[in-house]
Design a binder for these strands. Structure first.
Lengths: 197, 197
DNA sequence: TAAATAACATACTAGTTAGTATGTTTTGAG
DNA sequence: CTCAAAACATACTAACTAGTATGTTATTTA
């Protein structure tokens, strides 16, 4: 890793931390560079605008982290739909990248940026779509295996699962408490079991 | 209605519109007064700070509207848990107070304000809690009626329902499309039916 | 090694923001 | 009608923000 690309990464990581904690708008460039050894000149050498940096944070920090979370969690499940449960549980309780009091980074950014920045929305949409189709495929596979009811609609279930996850993260954020996650996970388990054949 | 209280209400309503569309941070006081006949002097006569106004918007606009939505929708259902479905459908598709492309006001504000304003969170929590207990009570009643399985946990179901609603609104906002609402509602119906005894 | 360019550093600017100081007008009680 | 308080109007300020202008230092490449 060259010194320059290290500077770039430092900016992105610190920016992610601040944006995740406080939101994009309330995170100023001055604040990002004040809490690193990076100067304004260096910042604007690497990024033309604040928004260009914001997009880079999503593409280079959030997206790979999310992708990694999906892959590692959905693959090694033994029972049908257990992967979806384990993934959600991991996202809510066991992951060090995510803090319960800060919500879901992708969801936070969606909420905040969607009204006035289509580029942000587009990149966040990519992440979401990957997630959606991954879950959909897990269910399709189980239907073929015969372990899940043939009548159910994989896409519907995927929407249902991701929505629930996003929403409960909002709960965790607003109440600043993980109790709701346990309630949610229990009900998620029951719901997923109701899909079994 | 006196002229003064009319001014106050004008501010709150316009502020709500802008905050709902664009978020709290990006809505400036200058913008609020520019799009009304209200001057800065009048604004600061009615509200000491921007945050005091923001809290008032939640308490006096969002909360009553939300309360009204809950009451009118949950009461006149004929089948068990139909009220929950109808309420959600109304919130997603049929309500004029809510626009699919702007998300849920309470959820939006939670996401945006929770990290740095506990007062906002507290008021939003009140709204959420009322919603939660209302749903919980609907389910408890049905369990007593014998129309819903005795084994299920009303609080868990309430969390599950609200989370799903919040999450799918996020989807609608990010994709700028209502298609996902139809998918979600179909799956919600199936989920609710699985709770019937 | 020398020049070119990449990578950074510093000081500044123009615009926006919440909030204030200091007025004037409107309203309602006596 | 009067006058005090309520309700509003206007001009301003201090702080912050993204972004720029203009440098200097570090790295390559020839």
């Amino acid at each position: 890793m060259t010194k320059a690309s290290n500077t770039r990464l430092t900016i992105l990581q610190k920016a992610f931390d601040l944006i995740y904690k406080k939101g994009y708008q309330t995170t100023s460039i001055d604040e990002i560079i004040a809490t690193t050894n990076v100067t304004k000149g260096a910042f604007y050498y690497h990024f033309k605008t604040k928004d260009e940096m914001g997009i880079a944070v999503i593409k280079e920090i959030v997206k790979p982290a999310m992708h990694n979370l999906l892959i590692t969690n959905l693959d090694n499940a033994t029972k049908p739909l257990e992967g979806i449960y384990l993934m959600t549980k991991s996202l809510l309780l066991e992951n060090s990248f995510l803090k319960f009091e800060y919500g879901c980074p992708a969801s936070n950014l969606s909420q905040e940026m969607a009204p006035w920045n289509t580029e942000f929305s587009a990149v966040l949409n990519e992440i979401t779509l990957e997630w959606l189709t991954t879950i959909e495929n897990v269910i399709k596979k189980e239907i073929i295996n015969g372990t899940v009811k043939a009548g159910i609609n994989p896409k519907q279930v995927a929407y249902f699962v991701i929505s629930g996850y996003w929403g409960i993260r909002n709960f965790g954020k607003i109440t600043n408490n993980i109790d709701c996650y346990h309630s949610y996970l229990q009900e998620l388990k029951l719901y997923l079991e109701s899909l079994n054949s």
